[in-house]
Nucleic acid binder design. Structure first.
Length: 576
RNA sequence: GCCCGAGUAGCUCAAUGGUAGAGCAACCGACUUGUAAUCGGUAGGUUGGUGGGUUCGAAUCCCCUCUCGGGCUCCA
């Protein structure tokens, strides 16, 4: 069977399982009202309105009912009905009636199996007995038709595969994703925490998380300076009027922390860093000769996110963007965009991300500026992408109101997609703030402004990075690069000598000088995912070396200290 | 924000209306160890909330509230 045909067959089965689940629910709840039940990746769901809330305990009951239905091997029967007949059939099903009304054709198709009939285009399996492996996974609320203003239904999610083995593989992959989850690893590896007393979505970076962040930030800064950026620092609050001028107050009021009053003036906690950079740019007259100006800042911003959307480090209320703004002439835009894109790509590959999506977002319904401006800027973005020979997709109408953009999206362990780096052309702020330069002609010209991040935010980036590596950070990012494990107390002095020497060479090293057995120390270093373990006992002291164990479990035996250092240094340089 | 679920010691979890318990971690002591957990002891909780209620009695039942989780909606 071709894989395409296989996919089609699987799709058909998943959809059929959704119907079987609906039948089971109907058997258990006569009053059930049915929403829709499509297939999704790996499985399906079905939305119901039920007389009571479903609990996780209900799932096995429903599954058992489904198995009965499958055992009956009832055929799926397709029938085409006139709409009036269909309305009669679904007279007690308001959601189905709504769907029937929206079908443009004169007739509709229904599928019947056993005691259950559903409005459905199909196709389905020949009979219920053809179902192979399935499992109901979880219950959740979902708005009817995805509309926040309409009623909330209960959704049951399930997965289905062509064989029990594939289902088992799926469940194993889910367990693996749970192990890689940055919220779990963040706790296990002691990277960060949040606190009820501080507030949701506000992150405390523990020493180890902070160390990873410092390494990233140092790397980021050096790379930016090398590429012609200048580092700046700007305030975290600013007068409300400034945010009114910028349009943020008008457009994003729902996403801002409430203003605070200081000396009779309203101030706002910043949701973006651009205004400080604009203010610096505007602090003196600028000549066309000195453009582009590139200001970079690891700028912490605060945005009010609705409680239900917060997620570990990936969606928070206070975060630090690796932000920069490029002020340039319109004839420089394309080159600048290509440079930024190149930098973003460089960053992604430096951190081992080889799988990411590139999306070009075009003009939305609400926008500022003129259509020709948008077209020109979009063209510049497109040319930059093509110049670097990058594969991308167009996301129509998904641009920001102030300009088109390119987003880089990263996937987490669960397959959730997060916006990482973003490159945005802005027509709005330069006009609103009259950001300009003196041209060759001696006249004032408005600059073009590019907002960009090449990591996204430090918080979200660490989330993706942690899940990408499953907590096994490459040596250059490992908070502790080596643990020295003395075998007996008489080796502790020697261990500290090695520590001093390694520290002197910039290696992040620690001695485990507790009065514990070597095996325990190895185990703990292993759980901590420390790349190198240096075991030192009599033999090592005599030869002035150390026995090296890797976190892979590999025992490399006795090496000289110079060899070990060299090994670590090489790994750091290779960012591996 | 909405629907559902969960919150017990630093962590992972037990106790289903009748005196809150275990393992790991912490602390103390012994052991001095050769590649993933040495042994013994001590201490630690007004059960998310210096919330409210039912009950002779609440970790357990109800209400409020906070936080977390699964989704939906949202995401400059």
């Amino acid at each position: 069977m071709t894989s395409e045909k296989n996919d089609e067959q699987l799709e058909r089965m998943r959809h059929s399982v959704a119907h079987i689940m609906a039948e089971a629910v109907q058997c258990l709840f006569k009053e059930a009202k049915f929403g829709i039940g499509p297939t999704i990746e790996d499985g399906f769901y079905y939305d119901f309105e039920l007389p009571r809330a479903l609990a996780p305990d209900d799932l096995p009951v429903i599954e058992n009912k489904m198995r009965e239905i499958i055992a009956q091997d009832a055929p799926f029967v397709r029938e085409e009905l006139g709409k009036d007949r269909a309305r009669e059939l679904f007279a007690t099903q308001p959601y189905k009636l709504e769907l029937i009304d929206e079908i443009p054709d004169a007739s509709v198709i229904v599928y019947e199996q056993g005691s259950f009939t559903d409005l459905c285009r199909g196709p389905h399996l020949a009979s219920t007995g053809k179902v192979r492996a399935f499992k109901l996974t979880h219950v959740a609320g979902a708005y009817w038709r995805g509309d926040e203003k309409r009623s909330m239904l209960q959704r049951i999610y399930g997965v289905a595969f062509g064989s029990q083995k594939e289902l088992d593989d799926y469940l194993f992959r889910q367990a693996e994703a749970a192990r890689r989850d940055h919220r779990r690893l963040g706790k296990e590896l002691d990277l960060y925490s949040t606190h009820e007393g501080i507030g949701p979505g506000l992150i405390c970076w523990h020493p180890r998380g902070a160390l990873i962040r410092q390494v990233i930030e140092d790397f980021w800064k050096a790379e930016h300076i090398r590429r012609g950026y200048e580092i700046v620092y700007t305030p975290h609050i600013a007068k409300l009027d400034l945010w009114k001028t910028s349009g943020h107050w008008e457009f994003y009021r729902d996403h801002l922390f409430s203003p605070m009053e200081v000396d009779g003036q309203q101030y706002l906690l910043r949701p973006m860093n651009c205004l400080g950079h604009i203010s610096i740019y505007k602090s003196k007259l600028r000549s066309y000769r000195n453009l582009p100006v590139r200001y970079a800042e690891l700028g912490t911003v605060y945005r009010y996110e609705r409680t239900g959307v917060l997620y570990g480090l990936a969606r928070v209320r206070g975060f630090t963007q690796d932000d920069a703004h490029v002020f340039c002439r319109s004839d420089q835009v394309e080159d600048e965009l290509a440079e930024v894109l190149n930098l973003a790509q460089f960053m992604m590959s430096s951190f081992g991300f080889d799988k990411y999506q590139l999306l070009l977002s075009t003009r939305p319904e609400q926008y500022v500026g003129t259509v020709p401006m948008w077209e020109e800027a979009t063209e510049c973005l497109k040319n930059a992408l093509e110049r670097l020979d990058l594969r991308y997709e167009v996301d129509p109408g998904e641009g920001v109101f102030y300009g088109p953009k390119i987003d880089i999206k990263l996937e987490d362990a669960w397959g959730h997609v997060w916006q990482g780096p973003t490159i945005q052309v802005d027509f709005n702020l330069p006009q609103r703030f009259d950001v300009c330069y003196i041209g060759e002609d001696g006249l004032e010209h408005t600059v073009v402004m590019i907002h960009r991040t090449v990591l996204g935010s430090m918080e979200r980036f660490l989330a993706c990075l942690t899940e990408h590596y499953g907590g096994v950070f490459p040596v250059w990012l490992s908070p502790v690069q080596a643990v020295i494990i003395p075998i007996a107390d008489r080796h502790i002095g020697y261990a500290h000598e090695i520590e001093a020497s390694f520290k002197n060479d910039g290696i992040r090293v620690r001695v485990d000088d507790r009065s514990e057995r070597m095996n325990l120390k190895i185990r703990e270093a292993q759980l901590e995912k420390v790349p190198y373990m240096l075991i030192v006992g009599d033999k090592e002291m005599d030869s002035c070396g150390a026995s090296l164990r890797l976190r892979s479990g590999e025992d490399l035996g006795l090496e000289s200290l110079a060899e070990v250092k060299n090994r670590i240094r090489t790994a750091v340089e290779a960012k591996s």
